[in-house]
Amino acid sequence: MALDLLEAQHGRGPCPDSYGSGEPVPPVSIRVAHADARWPDFTERALGQDIVTTFAVPLRRRENLLGALNVFVPTLPDPTPADAAASGLHVAQALADAAALGLQNRSAYAQYRALSGQLEQALSSRVRIEQAKGMLAERWSVRADRAFMALRQYARRHRLPLDQVASAVIEGVEDDAELRRESGGSSDGPA
């Protein structure tokens, strides 16, 4: 039911109006809106769903507009429509504010998780590169910077990520002779 009504809005309805303006759309009688040809597709479907009144409030966090919350009322309001409408708007806005906070927190959490994963991957990569550099420097009796240059040159020449070449060195599956040629092949003393 609600999904059908939301789909019927197609850019014209209380939700798009609230989202577009960033302001609440106060309670509107579906019959009056239908008679005025306001939101024709939406009001036609709402009448078919026995919706009497609708309103919408923006979902925003500070100045960041995230969407809009549509409220469908299947009954006539209490005898004090002004008070009921104001109360309904306040409750809906409080709910929308809570939802917006949840959406913002979810987004921030996802960003921090992604950044944390990237940093963890970069640290692991750096550790592997340092380990491979040390292994080659020890094996070839060269300085660590020369071993690193060999790793880097090999990676560039073969268009491989440096971390992948370092992993191959650690796992012992690299082409040691070709890597050594990248270092200049000569010993320049202890590391």
Rank of each mutant, 00 (worst) to 15 (best):
M1Y: 08
L3P: 04
L3G: 11
L5M: 10
A8S: 15
Q9H: 09
G11K: 08
P14T: 11
C15D: 10
S18R: 06
S18H: 08
Y19I: 03
G20A: 13
G22K: 08
E23N: 13
V25H: 02
P27W: 01
R31F: 04
A37W: 00
R38C: 06
R38A: 08
P40F: 06
D41G: 07
F42D: 04
T43V: 05
E44F: 07
A46G: 10
A46L: 05
A46K: 08
D50N: 14
I51A: 05
I51Y: 03
F55G: 07
R60N: 12
R60T: 11
R61V: 10
E63F: 05
A68K: 08
N70L: 15
V71G: 10
F72I: 04
V73L: 10
V73G: 09
P74R: 08
T75F: 14
D78W: 11
P79R: 09
T80P: 01
P81S: 10
P81R: 12
A84D: 13
A85S: 14
A86W: 07
S87Q: 10
A92D: 10
A92F: 02
Q93M: 04
A98M: 09
A98K: 05
A99N: 04
A100F: 05
L101H: 06
G102W: 01
Q104N: 10
Q111T: 14
Y112V: 14
Y112I: 13
A114Q: 13
L115T: 15
G117W: 02
Q118K: 14
L119T: 13
L123I: 09
R126F: 04
R126D: 12
V127N: 05
Q131R: 14
A132F: 07
A132C: 05
G134H: 08
M135T: 14
M135F: 04
V142I: 15
R143A: 14
D145Q: 12
R146W: 04
F148Y: 15
M149W: 02
M149T: 15
L151A: 03
Y154P: 07
A155E: 02
R156C: 00
R156N: 12
R157Y: 05
P161K: 06
L162E: 11
D163E: 15
D163Q: 12
Q164T: 13
A166K: 00
I170C: 01
I170Q: 01
V173A: 00
V173I: 13
E174T: 12
R181N: 06
R181W: 01
S183R: 00
S187Y: 05
G189V: 08
G189A: 07
A191N: 07
